[in-house]
Design a protein around this nucleic acid. Structure first.
Length: 554
RNA sequence: GCGCUCGUAGCUCAGUGGAUAGAGCGCAGCCCUGCGGAGGCUGAGGCCGUGGGUUCGAGUCCCACCGAGCGCGCCA
């Protein structure tokens, strides 16, 4: 759908050109017209500072330029007024009649309100979390989950063909250590006096998995004492771990479209094909007994090892093959990788690698989110799988619920260092913005169900009766959603959504306090019911974009 | 030491180079004989880490410094 913002930008742009054509304004280059939303209502609904930026090149006072351009703006039915104000802003006010009419538009568009077509069906992959299958999903991963899933939802709304993917690292040294730990636990269940390996995984869940395996296959995986465990331990363990992880993800409502096995890259020849391509393109050298990728030639600080002197490929080599698969085999137009800040040093070499494969690095976006520190009772809890002191995402979701967990994770910009105070999250659960927003929805549902008794059909309501300040403010807020989505698609910063949701709820609550919906005035009641139902559509949509529910009653 | 990120109200955080810097929580008050008070309204609380610079205009861009997190492996 066309954005009113774009329309206004076009009108101002055209007005500036018209002013030039009329000889009012000198023939200088006009900067891109971008309208902003002023903070103060007396500055109108949209504003442009183009005159201020034009003042120097046009060598005219900005206010005079503003007046000239304002005089040339073609005000149709959408715009109420165009005014030039000091020091040189053009303020634009939308027509109340046009605003009121948008209520019918929103109701007509329905659940799709906010959708954009900027994606034009392009294939985008969002890969996020991809935690190694060596332990349950922890709270820190929750941030990546909320980010990734929300980005995917927004891209989907913007017309991209989106795939959510989880890379299962089933081939690395970490899962080997995991398998050794598991085998030690397994042996312990048979009374053997063995200890879990150095750097292994001491968590309780390992005993649970071992017990499960024992109950399923008995002692059939037990090798003679002193020997390593059979490979089946590894595969069975990874499989069971992935089942736990999938449950954890389901608990917070994230559904992946694809689970990609790292091992498959080696099994199906993708890895070999990738190395061959890198070699052909001259980015591979052998040195000190290892095989290196010359990333320093492509802007990285240093070269990186692809194949260890032991013959084992590094994680980095697998990751290059993985991206070869994403871009060249599967043909995604765009790939978005979401990584924690502990992988930040990996970004330049991954970009370099994609470049080396002959893929435009612009097609790969790597979003880094800062790590989460957990606070409990004012004390910082270290998040470490190996220390066994993990706080699982499941624990958090069980305590605060999936909606609150999601809201809180997505509400922080990825760049910001996040302190997640578990005690506070629990304590505030009744005073949370989460419930503030959901309450607005429940209130609407209450009104609508009550309306059913008196106004079974309000579809004939005349929205032109919606002229109250609070009504118009609510409509304006609703109309912001598509603009916001455009912004999120552009920045990939979905933390704007929760803030918008809160503002929308505030606009509704304010309207509710000031305007009685169900009254003796039948015509006005019907018009307001339309407004309320439109607000319900938009609230539901923004909650859904964050993966949250819109409860009918609380 | 070098690199990335951050530093905004008591706390947790927003703030596409624009006009008088915002929200939630917390704090002090006020508003229910009409649709859900998990609500509304008012108030207190800020040298936007420090110092320079760019600009008509800087919380926002650049540089330096201070402080915090992360990284700098033939780990992932």
């Amino acid at each position: 759908m066309a954005l009113i913002k774009d329309e206004i930008e076009g009108l101002i742009s055209a007005a500036a050109e018209a002013a030039q054509a009329a000889g009012d304004l000198p023939q200088v280059a006009i900067p891109d017209v971008l309208v902003e939303r002023p903070q103060r209502p007396e500055h109108g609904d949209y504003a442009s500072s183009v005159p201020l930026r034009l003042a120097r090149t046009a060598s005219m006072p900005p206010l005079e330029i503003a007046k000239l351009i304002a005089g040339h703006v073609e005000t149709g039915s959408t715009i109420e007024s165009v005014t030039a104000v000091p020091p040189g802003f053009i303020n634009i006010r939308l027509s109340p009649a046009w605003l009121a009419a948008q209520v019918d538009v929103i109701r007509e568009v329905g659940a799709k309100f906010g959708n954009l077509d900027i994606g034009a069906g392009k294939k985008v992959q969002v890969e996020f979390v991809s935690a190694n299958p060596v332990g349950p999903i922890h709270v820190g991963n929750g941030r990546g989950l909320a980010l990734g899933d929300t980005i995917a939802r927004v891209l989907d709304a913007a017309g991209f063909e989106v795939q959510r993917e989880y890379l299962v690292n089933d081939a690395g040294t970490q899962t080997e250590t995991f398998a050794k730990t598991l085998y030690a636990r397994y042996q312990q269940l048979f009374g053997r006096d063995v200890e879990i390996p150095e750097g292994g995984y001491p968590g309780e869940y390992m005993i649970d998995i071992a017990t499960e395996i024992k109950s399923e296959v008995g002692d059939s995986l037990l090798n003679p004492e002193g020997e390593d465990g059979p490979p089946e331990i590894h595969d069975l363990g990874v499989e069971k771990m992935m089942t736990i992880i999938k449950d954890d993800l389901a608990a917070i409502g994230v559904k992946y479209d694809n689970w990609f096995s790292e091992r498959s890259l080696h099994a199906d020849g993708t890895y070999e094909a990738t190395m061959k391509l890198l070699r052909e393109r001259g980015f591979v050298v052998e040195r000190e007994g290892a095989v290196w990728f010359t990333s320093s030639a492509l802007g990285d600080e240093k070269d990186n090892v692809l194949v260890r002197s032991t013959g084992q490929p590094t994680y980095f080599a697998s990751d290059i093959a993985y991206h070869y698969d994403k871009f060249i085999v599967r043909g995604f137009d765009r790939v978005i990788d979401i990584w924690g800040a502990d992988h930040q040093g990996h970004v330049p070499r991954m970009k370099a690698a994609v470049n080396a494969l002959g893929v435009d690095p612009e097609r790969l976006t790597i979003t880094i989110y800062q790590l989460v520190s957990l606070k409990r009772g004012g004390e910082v809890v270290k998040l470490s799988k190996r220390a066994g002191q993990i706080v699982t995402l499941r624990e958090l979701v069980d305590e605060v619920g999936p909606d609150a967990a999601r809201y809180n994770f997505v509400a922080r910009a990825a760049d910001s260092h996040m302190d997640f105070d578990i005690d506070l999250a629990k304590k505030q659960s009744a005073e949370n913005p989460v419930y503030y927003v959901q309450y607005a929805h429940a209130r609407i549902a209450g009104i609508l169900s009550q309306a059913g008794e008196r106004f079974a059909d309000y579809s004939g309501g005349d929205v032109a009766l919606l002229t109250h300040e609070a009504e118009l403010a609510l409509i304006k807020k609703m109309l912001r959603l598509p603009e916001l989505l455009e912004q999120v698609v552009d920045s990939l910063e979905p933390h704007q959504l929760p803030y918008y949701a809160t503002e929308l709820a505030t606009s509704f609550h304010d309207f509710y306090e000031r305007c009685r919906v169900l009254s003796d005035d039948e015509a006005l009641s019907k018009a307001r019911l339309k407004l309320v139902s439109a607000a319900k559509i938009v609230l539901t949509r923004v909650l859904d974009l964050m993966g949250m529910t819109a409860p009918e009653r609380m």
